[in-house]
């Protein structure tokens, strides 16, 4: 059935894009790279505009928030799972590549550990909740 809250409103994703763009700009500005920060903010603002005004595409509506229902919840769940698998496989491959080259693969190892641990915890919690 339909979910109706702000995160499913038309303006949620555009607002989130602007917020994320502002955070990125702030991070670059702190690192004395205002120019790159402005570019990042511009990209995020453009993405937000696509979500705000791309009304005819069901994909954009689903990604952006409005128009979501139980079918979209299922699509979102499967897409998230697929993205997670792709990310974990990439991180694992990158870690193996770094280790095989004799380089420090600790960053990939940390990301992989976080991913694997969060998966195990999620399975345990979801099983407990039934």
């Amino acid at each position: 059935m339909q979910t109706r809250d702000f995160t499913r409103s038309r303006w949620w994703m555009p607002a989130f894009c602007l917020f994320l763009g502002a955070v990125m700009f702030g991070a670059f500005a702190i690192g004395d790279n205002v120019g790159q920060g402005a570019v990042s903010f511009g990209i995020m603002a453009a993405l937000g505009a696509v979500f705000a005004f791309g009304r005819r595409s069901e994909t954009l509506q689903g990604l952006g928030g409005p128009g979501r229902d139980e079918r979209w919840a299922m699509i979102d769940l499967r897409a998230t799972a697929l993205a997670g698998v792709v990310t974990i496989l990439f991180v694992l491959g990158a870690w193996l590549y770094q280790v095989a080259r004799g380089e420090d693969g600790s960053a990939y190892a940390l990301i992989g550990a976080v991913g694997g641990l969060s998966y195990v915890i999620a399975v345990a919690v979801l099983r407990w909740r039934g």
Binding site: M1, Q2, E58, G67, R68, D69, E70, R71, W72
Partner: peptide
């Protein structure tokens, strides 16, 4: 009436 999208009914 079902509070879902038209595309869901179509699917």
């Amino acid at each position: 009436a079902m509070q879902v999208s038209r595309q869901t009914i179509n699917s």
